Amino acid sequence: MAQRATKRQVNRLPPEQRIADIMRSAREVFTEKGYSESLISDIAERAGVVEGTIYRFFENKRDLLQRVAEAWYIEMMEASEPGFGAVQGEWNRIHYVVYSHLDAMQRDPGLARLVFHELRPDPHYRSTRLFELNRAYTRRIPEIVREGVARGVFRADVSSSLVRDMVYGAIEHRTWAYLRNEGEFDLETTAREITDVVYGGMLLPRAPAEAPRDEILARLDLLTQRVDAVARQLGS
């Protein structure tokens, strides 16, 4: 009697795990090769699947890049949220936000390049989920500004949205050479300098401090001596 052929068992992963594997592989390939040089076949090989499996979960390569970038923003928010609540003081809170973002860019320059060069220039960017995630991610700076104004630390005429744009614009400009593989930046120094400039520019002007009592008495004594000297000259 002919022996029945046995079927090879296929290890079927849950869809969530398969998607996670594909996105992890896509992130690696995109950051190594850049978007234009990355192929779906490269990602499939890295993930250990056939190309058709990728198209089951993602429309195309662009959709896959979009999802990878969204996951990165979610990672950054989840990493920074726990520590932010424990930070007190406007300078410290601004510094925490600036430092955290600089640190993320220093650790993942490839992803930062993809977002800046491939996704943000897209004419439909403002209608994407990535745009909404970016708004949520950058909301801390306007919150700090509004709270500082309410507490009498910052000027009332400060635009919170403008400050947000200045902070993230400064970060992008200071890291531009690094993202282009043309130089480095010092994380600690850059975070402190950006924070100092932004914080100092918003401070509410303070009235001059009152002169110490001894200094006032010394000035009065000097003035009295001068008046006496003038009086003696006039009487002589």
Rank of each mutant, 00 (worst) to 15 (best):
T6D: 09
R226L: 14
R232F: 01
A177H: 11
I171Y: 02
A136E: 14
V230R: 08
E70N: 11
K7N: 13
R192I: 05
T128H: 07
Q9W: 07
R219D: 12
P121V: 07
K7V: 10
E75P: 00
Q225L: 08
Y178W: 09
R140T: 08
Y125W: 14
L187G: 03
L203H: 03
T189Q: 14
A156I: 08
F185I: 02
L111C: 08
S38R: 01
A47T: 02
S161H: 07
G169P: 09
D122P: 01
L220A: 10
R135L: 15
R232N: 08
R8Q: 13
E81G: 03
V87M: 08
E215Q: 11
F154N: 00
A20D: 12
W176Y: 12
A229N: 11
Y137L: 13
A112Q: 04
Q233N: 08
L234A: 12
V68C: 13
V163W: 01
R12Y: 08
I54R: 02
H124W: 05
Y96M: 10
L13I: 06
G89V: 06
M105W: 01
V98M: 05
A69H: 03
L102D: 03
F154Y: 15
L65D: 01
N181A: 14
R174P: 00
A170Q: 12
A150N: 11
M202A: 04
R12P: 00
A191Q: 04
F154R: 03
Y55G: 01
Q17W: 01
L223T: 09
Q3D: 10
R18G: 00
L187D: 05
I22T: 03
S127L: 12
A47R: 01
L187W: 05
N134I: 02
F131K: 04
G200L: 03
G85Y: 12
Y178C: 05
V10Q: 14
G85L: 11
N181E: 13
R12M: 06
A229M: 07
D122E: 11
Y137Q: 07
A191T: 02
H95Y: 13
F131T: 00
L64D: 02
A5Q: 13
A229R: 13
R8L: 11
I74D: 10
R129N: 09
V68F: 06
I43A: 02
S160K: 10
G34F: 04
V197T: 14
T190N: 05
D63H: 15
